[in-house]
Design a protein around this nucleic acid. Sequence first.
DNA 1: TACCAGGAGAAAA
DNA 2: TTTTCTCATGGT
Length: 220
Amino acid sequence: MEAPQIRDLVQRLGAAFGPMRWWPAESPLEVVIGAVLTQNTRWENVERAMGNLRRADCLALESLLALPEADLGQLIRPSGYYNIKARRLRSLLRFVAEHGGIDALADWETEPLREALLAVHGIGPETADDILLYAFGRPVFVVDAYTRRLFGRLQWADAKAGYESLRGQVENALGADAAVLNELHALIVEHGKRYCRPRPRCEDCPLAVVCTEPLRRAGG
DNA sequence: TACCAGGAGAAAA
DNA sequence: TTTTCTCATGGT
């Protein structure tokens, strides 16, 4: 994977799809919530769960933490894994509350904040980086299933490449530019949704990437 | 019916 | 240390 290739990818996908303006949320707290709910789950199902929270007037830190875990689980049920996600979400929200809320965390340096997020139960590297990039505007790249699949098909990285390796390569190539890293990840997801899943449409793909390998879960 | 989705942690090997 | 299993709803 070379820097000019990655910059070219941003250019081509940007020309094909236009600006993405991610993350699809109304506030940093909604980014935090959505980052947990979208773990291994279609975004459409996350939206159903977010809708339930909104209708229950539970999109604020205090109201969410006031909910019993079982009740929270029922509200987020459409996003799947609802028992696990209710616990993870409460762990994350407690972390936010204990450190003074979203605005207070915004004052943290990126690396300490990343380490602290990773120490929260249920927050792995992808979820932490979603939060860093889309809630706090930090220059980190999010490596997700779409990214692994596309980079694999472009033969830029083998399927076993580690999360930090891929993240580092992209960040080194594009520099510490949150706006560009934001756009690239959003464009990769858009590409995946339009041309890879649920049904491959390689004939229309602006990257001319062909789905050669079976459509199995890539990496982990 | 079977498979899959913008992961992460626990358990098993 | 690495691999496998588990969690779960909703769409195709």
